[in-house]
Every structure is written in structure tokens, then in C-alpha cells.
Amino acid sequence: MLLTDLRTQVARYARKMYESQLVRATQGNLSARDPETNLICITPSGADYQLLAADDIIVVDEQGKIVEGKWKPSVETPLHTYILSKRRDINCVMHTHALYTSAFGVVYQPLPMILQESASCLGGEVPIVPYQESGTQAFAELVAQTLGEGPAVIWGNHGAMVVGINLALTFSIAHALEDTARIYSIAKQLGTPVTLPAEEVAKLHNNWKQGYRQTAIEDPLNAR
């Protein structure tokens, strides 16, 4: 089987997404690029996350053409391939439907930086992508434009997307996004949340980037 190890890890992290409630039912999707071949491993459309195994993961090329796999790839494949083509600094794309993060997309409120740990990997306020039907090239371009060089965006009236250099870091970024959204929502009920100064966020994010660059040198996909 082509790219067995990477497909195994994509299936594993897709199950972790479900287990940690970043997605529910068949929502969301996940992809990882193999840096050596530039082939992309992506979750299937309508997948039961709890049952996903390596041979359920589809391998596509950079244009989204199926190279190997028994199922139809995610309907968001155009988004994944487009983002990965524009961002050579990352290898993974994760689309989630986490509840608190999605709520910010319903009220169209960018997510501010209130936590040291989250600010480190998110690097600044997380923007909102205006609503547009997903699964299209136009939507992929809109998401890429809003994302820029950042690690995360929230989709208006839909969910969210995070990107990262490997599966483990991408998964961590998704949790940092949801944790921040949840804690901010709770804090708003208690009083007025205090955001971190922009210069402190920039410093934290720079230190974090230096750390993950070292991780990438040691293991490009941090699959273990």
C-alpha cells in the first residue's frame, strides 16, 4: 500500500479529532502531505471516524487526482490541495466543527488572544472567512486569502480550519483554537476578558516557531 505509515497516522489523528469532539458524526476532514513525493493523504467523504483505518485514507496528487484509494476523497479536497500548494511551509490541513470555535463564526467575531499557550501557536487574532458554499475552488481561494501566512481561520456559519507542519502540531493548534474560544466565552460571563498585548503575542509566537522548526528537522511529520 502506498504511503502506509502516513495513511496510518492520518487515520489515527482523524480518530483523535472525533474522540476529542473537534468533529462529530462525519463532519470535518484531515490531510497530510508527504514531503518527499508531494502526494497528499486525505480522509474519505462521509467517513465514520471511529472505524477509520489506513486503507480508508485516499492518496491524491497536488491537483486532487486519486492516486490510490478505495473511497471517494473528502468533498473539501480542492481546499486541501489549494492550501497546501500555496503554503509550502506546512504539510497538514485540518477542518473541524468544534462547538465554541464554530460559535465565533456564527457571530462573525474574530477570536482574540487571551491565553499564553494559545497565543504561542496561534500568533494573533484568528480571522473569520465570510460565508460561502464550501467544496468549491472559489471557497478554497477565499479561505487561502483570509488565512494568509497564519495557522488558523474560522469559517463563517460553518466551522474552522487549522494548518501545521505536522499532524501532532496541527492537532495541538486545533485544540488551542477551541480552548481559547471556550475560555473566552466563559470569561465573558464573568466579566471583561483581558487580551494579551500584541507585542507579547508576537514574542510568544516567535519562540514557538523556533521550537517547531527544530521538531520538523527531527521528524518532518512527527508521526510517532
Results as ranks from 00 to 15, higher is better:
Thr4Tyr: 13
Ala198Leu: 05
Ser31Pro: 02
Ala103Leu: 11
Ile128Tyr: 00
Thr192Asn: 10
Ile154Trp: 04
Arg213Trp: 12
Gln116Ile: 13
Leu99Pro: 05
Ala176Asn: 14
Ala223Asn: 09
Asp55Glu: 15
Gln137Asn: 06
Thr146Leu: 02
Ile154Leu: 08
Gly46Met: 03
Trp71Gln: 10
Asn38Met: 10
Lys72Leu: 03
Ala25Tyr: 15
His80Leu: 06
Gly150Trp: 05
Arg7Leu: 00
Ala144Met: 00
Ala176Thr: 07
Ile66Arg: 02
Val93Asp: 11
Leu221Lys: 06
Gln214Phe: 10
Phe139Arg: 06
Gln21Lys: 15
Arg87Ala: 07
Val23Ala: 12
Asn157Ala: 11
Ser118Asp: 03
Pro130Gly: 01
Ala14Thr: 11
Trp208Ser: 09
Gln214Pro: 00
Lys209Asn: 15
Val67Met: 09
Ala11Gly: 03
Ala119Tyr: 01
Gln116Asn: 14
Val67Ala: 08
Leu190Glu: 11
His97Gln: 09
Ala47Glu: 07
Ser74Asn: 02
Leu52Phe: 02
Asn157Tyr: 14
Asp61Trp: 00
Leu3Asp: 00
Glu141Thr: 04
Trp208Thr: 05
Gly46Cys: 03
Gln27Met: 15
Asp219Glu: 07
Glu133Lys: 12
Ile186Phe: 15
Leu30His: 08
Lys86Ala: 03
Ala54Leu: 04
Gln27Cys: 14
Tyr212Phe: 12
Ser172Arg: 15
Ser102Lys: 10
Leu204Trp: 05
Tyr131Asp: 06
Ala53Lys: 11
Phe104Arg: 06
Ala198Trp: 02
Gly64Asp: 00
Tyr100Gln: 11
Lys65Ala: 13
Ala160Glu: 09
Asn29Tyr: 10
Gln27Lys: 13
Tyr184Cys: 01
Tyr184His: 07
His97Pro: 07
Thr192Lys: 09
Val126Arg: 01
Glu19Arg: 12
Glu76Asn: 13
Gln214Ile: 08
Ala25His: 14
Pro220His: 08
Asp56Phe: 00
Ser134Trp: 14
Val93Gln: 05
Ile128Asn: 01
Glu200Gln: 08
Thr101Cys: 08
Val129Arg: 06
Val201Trp: 05
Ala152Asp: 04
Trp155Asn: 10
Ser102Ile: 03
Ala144Pro: 01
His95Lys: 03
Ala223Lys: 08
Ser102Trp: 03
Arg224Met: 12
Gln109Ser: 09
Val153Cys: 08
Lys70Glu: 15
Thr26Arg: 11
Pro44Trp: 03
Gly135Ser: 02
Tyr49Gly: 07
Ser31Tyr: 01
Val10Ile: 07
Glu141Val: 01
Met17Glu: 04
Glu68Phe: 00
Val93Ile: 09
Phe171Asn: 10
Glu133Arg: 12
Glu200Met: 04
Tyr13Cys: 03
His175Ser: 11
Leu169His: 11
Asn207Ser: 15
His80Trp: 06
Asp48Arg: 11
Leu196Met: 07
Glu117Cys: 08
Glu133Ala: 12
Leu169Asp: 15
Thr101Gln: 06
Arg33Thr: 02
Leu115Gln: 14
Leu22Cys: 11
Ala144Val: 00
Tyr131Lys: 04
Ser185Asp: 09
Pro112Met: 01
Met1Glu: 13
Tyr184Asp: 02
Ala119Met: 03
Pro130Trp: 04
Thr180Tyr: 01
Ala174Thr: 08
Ser85Leu: 05
Asn29Glu: 04
Ser134Arg: 14
Val194Phe: 06
Ser45Ile: 07
Ile183Thr: 14
Glu62Ala: 14
Tyr82Ile: 03
